[in-house]
């Protein structure tokens, strides 16, 4: 096999798998949601054992489908959905994503850094927008237990679960 063919294969592999991060045991990741819920088992309705803030660093120990068993720095373990965690570079925008095909220029990533609570406050002071209605809307978030009950009413089940 020639070297160029190997490189081609490698490139095709990159494109096929995409730049999406593949989680593996041992990976250091961060919580990517405002309130990450650590659960006792890899299921949407398993008991919540701890809530973790945005950006908290954890280590992946095991992957089961869409769920990751993680360990906190203090040794506490639990299960979290993989869409609630992300590699640190996606969180602090160090611009290290450029090795993936079709990714982000570092400049744009840096630009995004400015959008936070402080900027929203400034934006609100300059524009007469009804953010109270947004706050009310965000309050409609239902507990997962209610969603489970809603599905049960029609004999459906929560998807994305695995047996613990």
């Amino acid at each position: 096999m020639t070297r160029s063919f190997l490189i081609l294969l490698l490139l095709l592999g990159l494109i096929a798998t995409g730049p999406l991060f593949a989680l593996s045991p041992g990976d250091a990741v961060s919580i990517s949601v405002r309130e990450g819920e650590l659960r006792s088992a890899p299921q949407f309705l398993a008991a919540i054992t701890q809530r973790l803030g945005y950006g908290v660093s954890v280590t992946v120990e095991e992957i089961r489908q869409d769920w990751a068993r993680i360990v906190l720095q203090d040794g506490v373990r639990g299960w979290i959905h993989t869409t609630s965690i992300a590699p640190p570079e996606e969180m602090n925008l160090t611009g290290t994503q450029s090795e993936s095909p079709g990714t982000t220029p570092r400049e744009i990533a840096l630009a995004g850094r400015g959008f936070n609570e402080q900027v929203e406050a400034e934006y609100r002071s300059q524009n007469e927008l009804n953010f109270d209605r947004v706050d009310r809307m965000e309050g409609y978030l239902a507990p997962l237990e209610d969603l489970g009950a809603f599905l049960q009413e029609i004999d459906a089940e929560l998807s994305g679960e695995v047996d613990s």
């Binding site: 999406l20 994503q97 993936s100 744009i108 995004g112 850094r113 936070n116 609570e117």
Partner: peptide, 16 residues
């Protein structure tokens, strides 16, 4: 440049 895997915005910025 944006796709599901490589957003230039963090989840927090998407939210804001």
């Amino acid at each position: 440049v944006v796709n599901a895997a490589s957003s230039p915005f963090t989840p927090e910025q998407e939210y804001f």
